[in-house]
Design a binder for these strands. Structure first.
Lengths: 149, 149
DNA sequence: AAAAACCTCACTAAAATGGTCACGTTTTCG
DNA sequence: CGAAAACGTGACCATTTTAGTGAGGTTTTT
């Protein structure tokens, strides 16, 4: 039940772009540094994300990447599915490509796996990158509050 | 976010044992046949489950396996964790062995991953094998009802 | 004593994972 | 213009995990 490092890197890269203010693109090297991602691997990941239409790039000096959509219209679940494939504990409850179960009439675990998949979806498909940024801003404010005020 | 076939086999093996009435043990070959599990692989899995104290075995003719605990005191989550390891999308939110995050102060995704882990746990740790059996009996009854009554 | 069943433990082929390398193309700026 | 900065492309690779298989041994029942 775990997420690949590639997927986690992709999410962090998107987060860095979402956090970046203004219309100017952010360089790969900057993303890599801020989010502790191996730069060569990050290049591969960003290329893939570009292929999925999640980010846009600008070449040349002063080039870099930026989000293709506003952060409040981009969910974590979308990226997870794009990089790691369907969010489903077993193939038969996948929403995009549900593989037919080998048991006639469906196996004994079908409703159970469905509930697991739904529970995960309820979290990842309702969380946008704007939500994550807001959550961290709140956390940071509370932290300062504990010490200063 | 998916479960290994080994884990799924283990769950189905346990299910077969939970379904088996009486105190007499169930043979590996019977479990394999009912749940469509490669028999050699099932031997490996049952040995592992025995090591975890989930099942007991009897050797010799008329031997086989049975549950070490009643089905209503055995959750799906326990088996999943035992076979596949901690139920956590990333290591830092694992309950048993939480690996320290490389980001000082915790990364931006920590609360999010925690919510994902909790959502999964809420399902798998609250579902016992007795629950699954009851659910399938209900499903079967409803099915007969649609046709006969 | 023979047959049925579990036990041990080594082994392996294939796929996924987590990257790296070399070289190419585009854009900006002095 | 020309060089430097930055993204683009495709192959490549080592390690780990996955999903099993095989051979032979031990225990229990009939």
């Amino acid at each position: 039940m775990s997420v690949s490092s590639k997927c986690y890197y992709a999410l962090r890269a998107i987060y860095a772009l979402a956090e970046h203010p203004g219309p100017e693109p952010l360089k790969i090297a900057d993303i890599a540094e801020r989010q502790l991602i191996p730069i060569r691997f990050l290049e591969v990941i960003l290329t893939q994300l570009k292929g999925g239409g999640f980010v846009q790039s600008r070449r040349g000096a002063e080039g870099g990447y930026r989000l293709a959509r506003p952060a409040d219209q981009l969910t974590v679940g979308e990226i997870m599915r794009y990089i790691d494939g369907p969010i489903a504990p077993v193939d038969c409850v996948s929403q995009s490509r549900p593989k037919v179960c080998e048991f006639p009439g469906g196996c004994n675990f079908f409703p159970f796996w469905g509930r697991v998949r739904q529970a995960i979806s309820d979290v990842v498909d309702k969380t946008t990158f704007a939500d994550l940024i807001r959550e961290n801003r709140d956390r940071a404010n509370r932290y300062i509050g504990d010490w200063i005020i």
